[in-house]
Amino acid sequence: MPHRQAEPGQAPTVLCSWTKVLVLALRDHGCDADALVAGAGLSLDQLAAPDARLPLAATTDLWREGVRAVGDESLGLWVPRYSSQTTFHALGYAFMASSTLLEALRRVARFNVMVSDAARVELHCDDRSVTMSWYPLAPELGPALEAMEAILSLILRSCRKIKGRDFAPEAVELMRGACRDEQPFLEFFRAPVAFGAPRYSMRFERATLEQALEWGNEDLARSNDRVVEDYLQRLELGSVATRLRGLLVRELPGGAQGHEHYARALGMSGRSLQRKLSAEGTSFNQLLNDTRLELARAYLGQEPRQSLTEIAFLLGFADTSSFSRAFHRWTGVSPGAYAS
């Protein structure tokens, strides 16, 4: 789902708690982290508020100075060891409570803007594989190579917490050019790594990502989704599509409304809503269908599963037959066949 990136003239930002992880790692490795923070134009007071936003340019300087201080170009691979479940707000809990790793990665893609609005994220799925890709909007300004590698490292570490230490992608792409020692990267990812790529990406086997997770809890995951959506809406960081999706999730059990209703709730006209959604590569009807399909898959995957009548109501359909026809149109199978 598309997200609004930083507007022209608006400097991109980074979630403060992510930068704090870097500071903790530098301190633990004997660096004068306080001096490095000050040298990057930041203050310790700024780092004290976990939900605050920091300028991307300053955090990029801090990462680059951190590499020099530690003398390790693989810094990004091990910094995430200092992160915690709360580093990325409620997203960390939503990730760990997802019903499958594919759903977890979908959440990362959807809420990437919460971490930083400096890169576009795409999740491409085909019959055999799933590729998650990051495209920095202005690589010359940041993020630092190590900052992006840390994101990939954190996601992979989180997947390994769920699936086990042997979990690995099929292939990895990094924008870093030739490095002094490729071995740490090969050993960490346990997969072929292409350096000097035009993007950052990890490719996974789809069948593995779609396996049900023993401790998955979609109710808990969706509850944390709403916390993230509220955070983005308060800061107006999320795209119009993200904000509209949050409204749909909350209001669909009361019945689907026309786009004018949601436009008023977002403080704009219906025409303005349609125009903004079009600029983000989507439309009201597409977003409504995508949201309903995502929720339907989650409801159908729950154990014990709710009845089709209950699911139809939760998705704002007038009756079960309307839901069944829509689901077949979206997926090519009936809700019952999908859940079996």
Rank of each mutant, 00 (worst) to 15 (best):
A109F: 01
A94G: 04
V121P: 03
S98W: 04
R110V: 05
S99G: 13
L105F: 13
S116G: 14
V108D: 13
S116N: 15
V113D: 08
V121S: 13
Q85A: 15
T100W: 01
V113F: 02
T100N: 03
A118Q: 04
R106S: 11
V113G: 11
T100E: 02
L101N: 07
D117L: 02
F111A: 07
L105E: 03
A90D: 09
V113L: 07
A97E: 07
A90L: 00
N112K: 10
Y93P: 00
S99T: 10
A118V: 02
L105I: 06
L91G: 00
F111Q: 05
S99V: 14
L101K: 01
R106N: 07
G92V: 05
L101P: 02
A119S: 15
F111S: 06
L102W: 05
R120K: 15
L91Y: 01
M96P: 00
M114I: 10
L102Q: 12
Y93H: 12
V121K: 05
S116K: 06
N112H: 13
A94M: 03
L91K: 00
A119D: 13
L102S: 10
S99R: 12
Q85F: 08
F95W: 04
N112M: 07
N112A: 14
T100V: 03
A97R: 12
T86A: 10
R107W: 06
S116V: 03
S98G: 09
A97P: 09
L105M: 11
V115Y: 12
R107D: 15
Y93E: 11
T100I: 05
L101S: 07
R106H: 08
L91W: 00
V108R: 06
G92M: 03
M96W: 09
M114T: 08
S99F: 07
E103A: 12
T100D: 04
L102K: 05
V115W: 14
M114N: 04
A104L: 02
L102C: 04
E103N: 07
G92L: 02
V108N: 09
A118W: 01
A97S: 14
M114K: 01
M114D: 05
V108I: 13
R110C: 11
L101V: 02
S116Q: 14
L102V: 04
L91P: 00
M114C: 05
N112T: 06
A119T: 11
D117Y: 00
Y93R: 11
A97W: 01
L102M: 07
M114G: 06
L105V: 06
A104C: 05
E122W: 09
T86F: 05
S116P: 07
E103Q: 08
A104P: 06
V108F: 02
V108H: 06
M96R: 13
A94N: 00
F111K: 03
L91M: 00
S99P: 05
L101H: 03
M96N: 04
R106K: 10
F95R: 03
F95P: 03
L105G: 02
V115I: 14
R107T: 10
T100S: 08
F95M: 01
A118K: 01
D117S: 10
T87N: 00
L91E: 00
H89C: 06
A119I: 10
D117F: 02
N112R: 06
A97L: 07
F95Q: 06
R107K: 13
A118S: 15
R120C: 15
